[in-house]
Design a protein around this nucleic acid. Structure first.
Length: 394
DNA sequence: CTTCCACGGGAACACTGGGGTG
DNA sequence: CACCCCAGTGTTCCCGTGGAAG
């Protein structure tokens, strides 16, 4: 026993034989080269270039599925622009904000407050009217003449929560006397624009760049590039990369997923004390990837949501109707003397489950017997047990 | 054509955690 | 200090509506 443990620790202590630079496989890592996105980079650079002559660049909208390089392209072009502006002493400021990040910039107030802070004006998390935060933001932006380029990642979150924010931002140049501001909107939700009025829509998307999913070959190239710098020589071979690429290509060409898959595979290999990553490690990683996602989702669910999910699982039928779920749910919670939520709320919770892929739903009309939602659990048999176990403890 | 029942949008509310002002 | 104002979240309440069985 003791020697086993010693073996494990010694193995890790002697350094990794697989990874050379593991941090290059982290999703936060921004590579110097973005293969197969040369045209997008050029296009965006052309749009933003006028800022270097202190002209206001067009607003741009970037569309594309997750993991198609939108964020990387924006950050890459933005940092290059910033660098050149700094060298030549031109007052161009590139501001990247992820407006999907909870509690940071996902509401009107928080976005303005965040921007103020970036500009050095401290704004508390709450307590001040939004309009005065807005005024302070304008003041900060206008304090010195500059061209600001504001990249709003996951802008769909913001649009959905408060279309008003986007409306205001798209008109902000009439409030600014000395400075100018252009917006880069980044989203993977193509339908989101329907929340906006025609004027705002056209002003925001003066230019549009579409990011189509990578195909398996392109993902392979990207993985190859990335593994050259991340792994020790010989630790990884083409067939492993191909397998990761194929799996990700099947999932809408999400390259982030491909890289993560590669990393997990390598971690599994390392844990098995193998000195190279093999196909079997990737196969394990693919399975682990899917289960891990659902399990961590269930783990972080609030109590009410857990109870609803529990009701669905306990009914144990291929498809269930809302009424059945609700009755079961009420039955369960009243057993522990709790009150339980309204039907209306449960309906919304089912909607939340659907958007996270745990269930599939569709609305049908059963004629005389009214309208109902058909709910189908999308959790496979093997993880279902794990999840039931998680839910028992509530 | 009627009838039924949940769907789903929207308003309103409660509550939390935090202002600024006198 | 007390007091009222502010934003955000999760919830309830209200209600018009879709659409196939009967």
């Amino acid at each position: 026993m003791k020697t086993d443990i010693e073996k494990i620790f010694n193995f890790y202590a002697s350094g990794s034989v697989i990874f050379a630079r593991k941090d290059f496989l982290q999703s936060s890592y921004l590579p110097d080269v973005l293969p197969h996105r040369e045209n997008h980079i050029k296009h965006l650079a052309q749009i933003l270039a006028p800022s270097l002559r202190l002209e206001n660049p067009s607003n741009v909208f970037l569309y594309g599925r997750p993991g198609t390089g939108k964020t990387a392209v924006v950050q890459y072009v933005g940092s290059q622009l910033q660098k050149i502006a700094q060298d030549k002493n031109i007052p161009v400021k590139f501001l990247y904000v992820n407006s999907g990040l909870k509690k940071i910039a996902d509401t009107e107030y928080r976005l303005y407050a965040y921007l103020c802070r970036r500009m050095g004006d401290f704004i508390p998390d709450t307590g001040i009217p939004t309009s005065s935060v807005f005024d302070r933001m304008i003041k900060a932006l206008d304090s010195k003449p500059a061209v600001y380029i504001l990249a709003l990642d996951e802008i769909d979150v913001l649009i959905e929560k408060s279309p008003n924010t986007i409306y205001t931002l798209s008109r902000i140049n009439s409030e600014l006397k000395n400075s100018k501001l252009s917006i880069i909107g980044i989203t993977n939700d193509l339908s989101i624009m329907s929340h906006l009025d025609a004027k705002t829509k056209s002003s925001l998307s003066e230019e549009e760049i579409i990011f189509s999913p990578y195909n398996a070959n392109q993902i392979k190239d990207i993985l190859q590039d990335r593994s050259n710098i991340s792994f020790s020589p010989g630790a990884i071979n083409d067939s492993v990369i191909l397998l990761c690429a194929a799996s990700a290509a099947k999932n809408h060409g999400d390259v982030r997923r491909a890289i993560e898959l590669l990393r997990i595979s390598a971690e599994i290999a390392e844990r098995e004390a193998s000195n190279k990553v093999l196909r079997k490690h990737v196969e394990v990683a693919i399975g682990k990837f899917n289960t891990d996602q659902i399990i961590s989702f269930v783990k972080t669910l609030p109590e009410h949501q857990k109870n609803v999910l529990k009701a669905i699982i306990e009914l144990d039928k291929p498809v269930v109707y809302t009424r059945e779920i609700y009755n079961k749910y009420i039955e369960n919670v009243s057993k522990i003397g709790a009150k339980g939520l309204t039907m209306r709320r449960v309906l919304d919770i089912l909607g939340e489950f659907e958007s996270s892929g745990v269930v599939g739903t569709s609305v049908i009309s059963r004629g005389r017997y009214g309208r109902t939602k058909v709910v189908e659990l999308k959790i496979g048999g093997n993880i279902k047990d794990d999840i039931e176990q998680l839910l028992v403890e509530i």
